[in-house]
Design a binder for these strands. Structure first.
Lengths: 342, 342
DNA sequence: TGTTAGCACTCCAGAACACCGAGTGCTAAT
DNA sequence: ATTAGCACTCGGTGTTCTGGAGTGCTAACA
């Protein structure tokens, strides 16, 4: 168990190191008003804190630097009382500015987030499975090709190009699409496959000649997965951090950022609230000396996506956690409005 | 005027430096089979070449390094006879692999290009103004919002979200869109505004009540600019080059790459053939020690876009120019097929 | 006259060394 | 329990030294 004084010293050291990125010495701590102890006293506590694993030295006579365990303690026990969910209405301002596509709002949010923090922001989602179908459509673009288009109530548009086999009858396709639009209007995307199989198949058999082939084709066009998008902003911010003077580190960082699947899997890791992953707690090699902070946003009970910030382990946790907390709530609110309006 | 021996020496020095990135000394040159002269002789020529501005020294007793003027001479007079337009069928393979959207083909091409060269590849375009209209459509997504969708014969889909003012009559909109689709089918996008004003306006006035307002609205939905896309691949390749050990350089490179408008303007700089811009010939500060090689691709007489490679001034010009030459022709061929199929 | 061998000179890169200062741990005094 | 004092450690910086790769110049040579 830590004494109050040790707690105070740990906090001061971490705060200081977060600010300066330089090892902190006992003299510097003693100079602070909130620490009315002599350097020698502080040195004793520092030695204890090091023994307990919260601090490290860069060499035998250097000042102290927080260990990952130290950051962990700091996040879990020291700053947690100060985490509020402020209200900065970032999203409201963005929306007022006249953006109307959800994707743009999200992209803009990512930009604001990285500007506000000087770290790299990543937003996953939103999932669109709760969005309701507005229209399906086939547009023939050439004798052999066509585009399948899907529109949702959230203004989301998906499209795919296809080659059209000769065997498929255009008028059959048209009939089917008409039926689908009739029957599936306002159905959430997540229910499409189910509805299709249960209610529509039998209906269509009556109207369409070469049912099997046409139906398979339709499914390929409209029932594919809806890929979740990743919005990233502020990749260069990371280069401003003093710990990234090393070209090799920069390279591995950018390499990783090119691999969207990997990043997405990092963010999907869904808990209920804010999650802080420090240094080696990250499973992915390339971010072993980063910290990743994620916050989910939701629609009802469904997690729709994740807002995240990636920065050095020496991160401004207090500020960042508060910010993410706020923003994830705002995102949740926006989604609520966006999806519930008919 | 350069003597044959000077020409040979210049070529050898540049080839060597391109390969090793190290200053080249007279002894190393003399060891080569194709240079049957003593180091002393070579030194004399090197001094001359330096006087003429083709070579530089990094310090008073170092080996020589090509100057930008040297590269320029190399590109214009030394390697030009060797530039062929090979036939590697990159695009054919990509298309065979089952990609069908033009955008994906272009993206994939950029990736192949950067993999093949280890530089950063950038592709601009293709412009879609030559594409022909297949369908315009309004989909109402909620009482206040709608999406406008435009599909071309090339499988390109554009969409925009809107708020719908109460004053606009939905059935008027529908009528208008129907008329548009009737009249504008297969019209190249570039002719849309003209056709609309000349032929359609008068027609529509007859059918629609609140013509003015509805028409303005339609124009905003469908007659916006068609943004030209930028496809980039291999940004991290640049980090492998030994000249980019400096974090500050890396930072400015990535900063620049984030500014798509600037890059696009660099590439638009359209000439007829391949264009090589070396170091300070580039107007943009951030790439003053890069070389940029661009090649246009076209449809008929219209330049549709640009393929480019960005690398250090010490670039493998011979290989890269040949490659770009080939690929720009292949792109032109692909576009031809893509746009001409009805 | 063009080419080459020889030589003195230059300058960078890296190793070795000394020195300073910030910081520590320990001990003894308060 | 806290603190003053002190010896000690170690990284960073600046200096000096040295080896080697490379040059320019001069004189000899074909």
């Amino acid at each position: 168990m830590l004494t109050n004084r040790q707690l105070l010293i740990l906090q001061v050291i971490i705060d200081d190191f977060i600010e300066t990125a330089l090892p902190v010495g006992s003299r510097a701590i003693a100079k602070r008003e909130e620490v009315p102890f002599s350097p020698a006293t502080i040195r004793n506590d520092m030695a204890d804190l090091e023994d307990m694993g919260y601090l490290e030295k860069t060499h035998s006579s250097s000042g102290r630097v927080p260990s990952e365990k130290g950051y962990r303690y700091y996040v879990d026990h020291i700053i947690s009382p100060y985490i509020a969910s402020g209200n900065i209405n970032v999203l409201e301002h963005i929306i007022e500015d006249g953006f109307i596509e959800l994707e743009q709002v999200v992209q803009k949010t990512a930009e604001v987030l990285s500007d506000l923090t000087n770290y790299t922001s990543i937003i996953l989602g939103p999932e669109i499975f709760e969005a309701k179908l507005r229209q399906l459509q086939f547009v023939t673009t050439s004798p052999q090709t066509a585009v399948a288009i899907l529109v949702t109530n959230t203004g989301h548009v998906e499209h795919r190009s296809f080659t059209v086999p000769n065997k498929i009858n255009a008028s059959d396709l048209e009939k089917m699409v008409n039926i689908l639009n009739d029957r599936l209007y306002n159905v959430p995307l997540v229910q499409l496959p189910h509805k299709l199989n249960r209610e529509i198949v039998s209906l269509m058999k009556n109207y369409v000649d070469d049912f099997e082939r046409t139906y398979d084709y339709l499914k390929a066009a409209f029932l594919h997965d809806h890929p979740v998008k990743l919005y990233v902003s502020g990749k260069t911010n990371i280069l401003m951090q003093p710990e990234f003077k090393d070209v090799e580190k920069i390279r591995s960082f950018y390499r990783m950022m090119e691999n969207e699947d990997e990043i997405a899997s990092l963010l999907k890791n869904g808990t209920n609230g804010i999650k802080v992953t420090i240094g080696n707690e990250n499973k992915i090699e390339a971010i072993k000396d980063f910290s990743l902070i994620t916050a989910p946003y939701r629609l009802g009970d469904n997690q729709m996506g994740t807002i995240a910030l990636l920065g050095p382990t020496r991160m401004e946790y207090k500020k960042v956690i508060t910010l993410l907390n706020t923003l994830s709530h705002e995102m949740t609110d926006v989604l609520h409005v966006w999806y519930k309006q008919n």
